[in-house]
């Protein structure tokens, strides 16, 4: 028995295109092995929308986006599509806006109000209003899944859940911004200055043209809010995080002096009581002193001590794999209902 699961994708950047490609390529596999038949019934980008109740032709959609920069011919408001299109899951992939989390916030609220499940890779709505969004989702009986918001494809939240099964978690700390970590590693490996290393990160596609979200610590702050709420059951928002210091002012001479002492400087987000983001000088053997465009998170468990998850955490493809993970989980629960 296959269950039809209808999706709306809002936001059609790198992650969405990678996801749509996978849905197309692996659709048959999911039908056969999971009994889930994904139909993309609407796709919305900032300029246009495409809707088809019977399922859009994904190959055609990707081709049009490639050629015209638009998914559709007409502009339609995303909220209207989210509320009025018959669908099971909203996949929210608009860019992170740290100031008011829009337009993602409105999309999430519209979906929850319209009793649709949500899978999102946009961390800002959750960072701004996690407690109230989750409460309203619960009251509507819908799921909100967001594993792609943290660690790109690295299953940090699942790892944290597993740690918490048998004992309380006392503290979480981690390197959560792959771009900044790449920049710092580069400064260590070839003595480049911050601007030079940042330029390198931009060339390789790790950093945005305006990287303040990454290097000034805001992205890490949003992620620690989500991790703390999810695994430590806190009720935090971005406003609660003290962003003490980003990596902009780290000089090559400081990096060099630390290297001679066998130490590394890393931007670490942590939460025990109060969440904060700051630059720490770590001994070389510390698991948090990871190199490259990676994330690492240390969960401090009450009885078993420190548990660490780490790995590469950048790029649209890895992020879309986390979205897919969430979609399959929601899909499986719909099938059972």
């Amino acid at each position: 028995m296959t269950e039809e699961v209808r999706l709306i994708i809002v936001g059609f950047g790198v992650v969405a295109r990678s996801l749509a490609g996978s849905l197309e390529a692996r659709g048959e596999e999911f039908r056969r092995t999971r009994g889930i038949d994904f139909h993309l019934v609407a796709a919305v980008d900032s300029k246009s929308a495409a809707i088809d109740r019977n399922g859009l032709d994904v190959r055609e959609l990707l081709r049009r986006k490639e050629e015209t920069g638009r998914v559709g011919r007409r502009h339609l408001p995303a909220t209207e599509i989210i509320e009025d299109t018959e669908a099971d899951i909203l996949v929210e992939l608009t860019p992170a806006n740290p100031l008011d989390a829009e337009p993602g916030m409105t999309h999430l609220k519209s979906a929850i109000k319209a009793s649709k499940h949500v899978v999102t890779a946009n961390k800002m709505p959750l960072a701004h209003e996690y407690p109230s969004l989750m409460a309203s989702a619960e009251s509507r009986g819908v799921q909100v899944r967001y594993s792609a918001c943290v660690g790109a494809g690295l299953p940090i939240l699942d790892f944290g859940d597993a740690c918490a099964v048998s004992e309380p978690l006392l503290k979480v700390e981690g390197v959560l911004n792959a771009t900044s970590n790449f920049v710092l590693s580069r400064m260590e490996s070839d003595s480049s200055s911050f601007p030079e290393a940042l330029e390198e990160a931009k060339k390789l596609g790790y950093a945005e043209s305006n990287p303040w979200l990454d290097v000034d610590g805001v992205d890490s702050a949003a992620k620690i809010v989500i991790i703390a709420n999810h695994t430590l059951k806190k009720s935090l928002t971005l406003k609660d995080v003290a962003i003490v210091e980003g990596i902009r002012r780290i000089s090559p001479s400081r990096v060099k002096a630390l290297r001679e002492e066998g130490k590394k400087v890393r931007m670490v987000a942590s939460v025990e009581r109060r969440p904060e983001v700051r630059v720490l000088e770590l001994p070389g053997g510390d698991p948090l002193s990871i190199d490259g465009a990676c994330n690492v998170v240390k969960f401090h468990c009450k009885y078993s001590g420190e548990r660490v998850v780490s790995g590469p955490a950048a790029g649209g493809v890895t992020t879309s794999s986390a979205v897919m993970r969430d979609l399959l989980r929601v899909g499986a629960s719909i099938e059972g209902s």
Binding site: W212, V218, V241
Partner: peptide, 14 residues
């Protein structure tokens, strides 16, 4: 909050 301060600084930087 911290984010708004950092964003403001970035505008001035730009």
């Amino acid at each position: 909050d911290s984010t708004q301060v950092i964003h403001f600084i970035d505008r001035i930087r730009g």
